[in-house]
Design a protein around this nucleic acid. Structure first.
Lengths: 217, 217
DNA sequence: CCACTCGGAGGACAGTTGTTCACTGACTTC
DNA sequence: GAAGTCAGTGAACAACTGTCCTCCGAGTGG
């Protein structure tokens, strides 16, 4: 009675996911370009050759990991952008979401931070592309805010990219602070710094127009 | 007449440098954790075992590369911090220096960006430590500026860290824009974005105090 | 000039790697 | 229920890895 749509295909995606999970786990202490195909299959418990049924090579697996890793964060930030709130509260909420994301998906965060400038071109490009879409989305959201009145599309986009970059950097910083020396102190400091820096950028944003009209006499 | 102080030791440091250079070259298209010891010695033209005369393992070589890579940038930025200039001009000069640094030491920049979150713990820590010293130095310089009047040491430090982070990110962005698609366009855009973002931070910095005194009634 | 230091050579070791090929057998489709 | 698909198997391949060991010979210090 349970032949809904493909017992076979279901099993395939199951081991495919197992491959992704195993790789992600192994990538906690090495980078993708040093990861071995056999190493991954060994953890999953399948023959090395079975790997090819799912991915052409490890680069392709890496790209799949990028989508998985950035996909979850994407939906989270989308939620923040939707709500209208005061600048100060928005910042707190944003950092809180990032903090939660790091706690729930530490491996994903580490993967993105590590492979963003890593040794595998295809993965780098996948991350860059995803972050670009990300930036465009943030820019759209920023444009609707009153503060952006009179801003050029280009200026809004540069601001959006700055925000996106801070998000990624912040997440990586929180993660680093976790498995480092002091257990609670470093992490809390990272969060504090992130909030402070976002606040500074927000203030700069609010006073941007005064400056621009005043600097050309 | 040329037995100044050690023909032998001179030769040793020469091959040591050759090892560093060879590794740096190979690291253009892979990450440190996937780099092979034999791979490096093959490029230099020495026996694999000779490697051990200079480094215990590749991690140690990586740490040496960190010092070499960050050392050059360090002295450059120190020069910028020394000179007193208007905010706008200072930003232009800073970005110009970064741009020049990327052009002259692309491999070093790529190495730092790649291994900052890379798979080798010792190297990560070396970079983190170096950037921390870096941040402290920038903080010292910022403290002497009139704009920082009334700022706590902690606030100045967070600002300094933000600046340092932007420098590294900017350098990496310029580098990425170079060997990507469009030859001149992308690079110039990266520079423009960097300047814009620094300007925004600078404005936020100037209006920081107003905001702080106004938000608590 | 002689004893010594020490950067480097070269062989050999056991492991590991990615990829190939023909194969099996449970699921799917008609 | 027969024919076909296809995820996973297992042996075999050449190529490579890091490290150990012994040896060499040019520079060094007395």
């Amino acid at each position: 009675m349970s032949h809904t749509v493909g017992v076979r295909q279901a099993q395939k995606q199951k081991t495919r996911q197992a491959l992704l999970d195993a790789a992600l786990g192994l990538l906690a202490e090495q980078s993708l370009s040093s990861l071995g195909l056999r190493e991954v299959t060994r953890v999953v418990g399948i023959a090395p050759t079975a790997f090819y049924r799912h991915f052409r090579d490890l680069g392709e697996l890496g790209v799949a990991l990028v989508e998985e890793a950035l996909g979850s964060l994407h939906s989270m930030v989308r939620a923040i952008l939707a709500e209208q709130a005061a600048a100060e509260e928005r910042i707190d909420r944003t950092v809180a979401v990032v903090e939660r994301h790091v706690r729930e998906h530490p491996a994903h965060v580490r993967f993105v931070a590590r492979e963003r400038h890593g040794g595998v071109r295809a993965v780098r490009q996948a991350i860059a592309g995803e972050l670009e879409r990300f930036g465009a989305e943030v820019a759209d959201a920023l444009r609707t805010q009153p503060v952006s009145r009179g801003w050029s599309d280009d200026d809004v986009r540069m601001l959006a990219d700055l925000y996106v970059d801070r998000l990624v950097t912040t997440a990586a910083a929180i993660l680093d602070a976790e498995d480092a020396g002091s257990p609670e102190g470093e992490r809390e400091r990272a969060v504090r710094v992130a909030r402070w820096q976002l606040r500074l950028i927000s203030i700069g944003r609010q006073h941007w127009k005064d400056e621009e009209s005043g600097e050309r006499p």
